[in-house]
């Protein structure tokens, strides 16, 4: 009997739009979710131990924890990258990967490496760790934060010599880090939709007609995000 009333209130509480109506039956508060394996205990699918240590350390500098807003580790960006590398993207499963290759072609031609993204990570991490050993006497993961930032800046600006096959390594790493930070949590990162809460993106709500009204100009959207699985934050 009371179910109906309860659902009506809840629907109003959500958005009133089609998306809100659909969600009222599936939305679950985050507290009710099963917590995932802690990051320290996560067993990487693609990366080996040294590579995983690098991914953890590098993403933590690309999106650090300090200041406002979540960092890459809190949002489980490394898990996202590991899953991507083990999956279609990392394996270049949908790309045209037939030779002959010209990896040193002008960048305007786009990706021309014979390696898959997962292989670029593998080779890139190894070459970059060697460089860190030579210039800083330790692998990247063992450097302090300032030295790590310096090393990443060198990688970013092309000062770390890499074979042309690996030249997209930093761009891939940075792009995938941001993807893991902002993508729907179903892909393994953006844990608890923390990046969306931080910037004010409502996720998969996908129904905003009333917010085109001039009375809503410059009024920050009041509702927190929902994910595809129906979590709310």
């Amino acid at each position: 009997m009371s179910t109906r009333d309860f659902r009506t209130t809840r629907r109003q509480f959500l958005t009133g739009g089609a998306a809100g109506a659909a969600l009222s039956t599936v939305a679950r508060p985050l507290a009710a979710q099963e917590p995932p394996v802690p990051l320290e205990q996560y067993r990487a699918e693609y990366f080996n131990a040294a590579e995983w240590a690098f991914i953890m350390a590098a993403t933590a500098r690309l999106i650090p924890a300090d200041g406002d807003g979540p960092g890459a580790l809190e949002t489980r960006v490394p898990v996202f990258i590991d899953r991507e590398m083990a999956g279609e993207f990392g394996q270049a499963a949908t790309w045209y990967m037939e030779g002959p290759y010209q990896p040193d072609a002008a960048p305007l031609f786009g990706y021309q490496s014979p390696l898959t993204p997962a292989e670029v990570y593998r080779g890139g991490i190894s070459a970059f760790n060697d460089w860190c050993e030579r210039h800083h006497d330790a692998a990247f993961a063992d450097l302090d934060a300032d030295a790590q930032d310096e090393a990443l800046s060198a990688l970013d600006s092309g000062e770390v010599p890499l074979e042309p096959e690996l030249r997209d390594f930093f761009d891939l790493l940075l792009q995938n880090t941001k993807e893991g930070y902002f993508a729907d949590p179903k892909h393994g990162g953006n844990h608890e939709m923390a990046s969306w809460v931080y910037i004010g993106f409502p996720g998969a709500r996908a129904s905003f007609l009333e917010w085109t009204d001039p009375s809503k100009d410059n009024v920050p959207y009041p509702l927190g995000p929902v994910s595809i699985a129906g979590e709310r934050a």
Partner: peptide
């Protein structure tokens, strides 16, 4: 493009 400055920037400028 990355680091603490980027994280600050996305909050400040998104939207």
């Amino acid at each position: 493009k990355w680091g603490a400055g980027w994280k600050e920037g996305i909050k400040k400028w998104y939207g």
